[in-house]
Design a protein around this nucleic acid. Structure first.
Ligand SMILES: [Mn+2]
Ligand SMILES: [Mn+2]
Ligand SMILES: [Zn+2]
Ligand SMILES: [Zn+2]
Lengths: 136, 136
DNA sequence: TCCTACGATGGACTTCGTCCAAGTCAAGAA
DNA sequence: TTCTTGACTTGGACGAAGTCCATCGTAGGA
């Protein structure tokens, strides 16, 4: 994740301990944390970090394209640091576990012209739902 | 939508004016209203209907499979009465307009076996994002 | 080392949604 | 038709997720 810190510095960010710790929490594969989970883990390293700062930092990372927001049905948004590799999600209906997946094919191309209603289609988000081995 | 009312009666529902009016509001194509929009429109016909009843009724319709919940990124859930025809969604990033679309191809089949992590995959939800003609 | 604009803080506030005790009424029984 | 009763509705309190803002603190350049 020092890659991320380097990129942020390059973008003119002040490197504060709060931003560093949020970036460290958002490291690894298949990471899809809620803002509250990010705050809890960040607070384990830097006890006085505020919720507002976590929200601010996550919002900035999303705006920079360094982190993705993953939509949920009625639950808190999840933040995904794997923004450099295009991917989709497989979600367990039982325990909520989220895995990164890479379907083959061209999902955008699968949308016929007459079904586009004049829209300029820019991206597609796919969520596979199923039951994981542990929940089966 | 009297079809829906008939099915609900068949399932043993008491047919109250509140439930009738919610069912009437959820009629038509490309309908993807928030709970609050349903409440506003229902209240235009039945002024004293409460928010709690709208939420209760929507939750019951979802549980019966008569209405779908459409996930959003950080905004209020949308309720979709088109639950009888499998379809996906095209969303305008500008104004939030939602259209029903029917992509060709087999999205579930596009997920390779080695990307399923042992899950039993049951369904797939696809959201196309773009800019509508009005917002362009 | 000093300055200052950018960032952090916490608490008020908003939005979306759930829960509950009390009152109401749809629909079957008689 | 009237009676009865449990299912339904109501408004308001409550809760979770997220935003906003005035004020304070500090990273990093001069
Ligand atoms: Mn991911
Ligand atoms: Mn739809
Ligand atoms: Zn599971
Ligand atoms: Zn639009």
């Amino acid at each position: 994740m020092s890659d991320l810190l380097r990129r942020l510095r390059g973008r003119g960010w002040r490197m504060t301990s709060q931003r560093r710790v949020v970036a460290e929490v958002l490291d690894g594969d298949h990471v899809h944390l809620t803002a509250d989970e990010v705050h809890q883990r960040a607070a384990a390293r830097l006890p006085e970090i505020s919720r507002a700062t976590v929200y601010n930092t996550l919002g900035e990372l999303v705006a920079l394209g360094e982190v993705l927001e993953v939509s949920t049905v009625g639950r808190a948004k999840r933040y995904d640091p794997n923004a450099r590799t295009l991917h989709q999600h497989l979600v367990c209906s039982g325990c909520g576990m989220v895995r990164d997946v890479h379907p083959v094919g061209d999902a955008i191309g699968d949308l016929p012209e007459e079904e586009r209603f004049g829209f300029t289609v820019g991206s597609v988000e796919i969520t596979y739902r199923g039951v994981c081995p542990g929940c089966a």
